[in-house]
């Protein structure tokens, strides 16, 4: 297993474990508003610390793999993963937009909506830049 693949397994395990720890109190209290900034900050700090420790451990255990540069297959796999992640994020943003519209929260509705518009502008502009560069 390459270092990149091990790293991806660690990321998946950490997000699943921390995500479960984050969501559990919400399920228990049956309130999606029970967690706030402190919990989010805790999640982020815990993730960064655990991810760093895990990488140090695997780098010590397999230094050769850790020093090996990523190759084209890693990049392609990463790209496919990023695309799947973008679809998932887009679905959540659409859900958030729907909730904001239903609850008449115009601030968040516009943040979600303009966020989608902005991401499409960035996507199209980047694609056009690449088309022109390779033309």
């Amino acid at each position: 297993m390459s270092f990149k693949e091990i790293s991806t397994w660690i990321m998946l395990a950490l997000f699943a474990a921390l995500g479960f720890a984050y969501v559990s109190p919400m399920i228990e209290t049956r309130s999606f508003a029970s967690a706030g900034g402190e919990q989010i900050l805790g999640f982020v700090i815990a993730f960064v610390v655990l991810f760093t420790i895990a990488h140090i451990v695997i780098a010590i255990a397999a230094p050769k793999a850790a020093n090996a540069a990523e190759d084209e297959r890693d990049h392609r796999i990463e790209l496919y993963g990023e695309r799947a992640g973008a679809y998932a994020l887009g679905a959540v943003v659409l859900f958030g937009l729907a909730v904001a519209l239903i609850t008449d929260n115009r601030l968040f509705a516009n943040i979600f909506f303009l966020g989608l518009v902005w991401s499409e502008i960035v996507k199209a502009a980047w694609q056009l830049a690449l088309y022109r560069r390779d033309a």
């Binding site: 390459s2 990523e70 190759d71 084209e72 297959r73 890693d74």
Partner: peptide, 22 residues
């Protein structure tokens, strides 16, 4: 070649088509 061993394994098995350069 400048790739990982896993990439060579995938190419050998025909599971990954490498770039022209590789």
């Amino acid at each position: 070649v400048g790739v990982t061993r896993q990439t060579i394994i995938s190419i050998e098995k025909g599971k990954y088509a490498p770039s022209l350069e590789v």
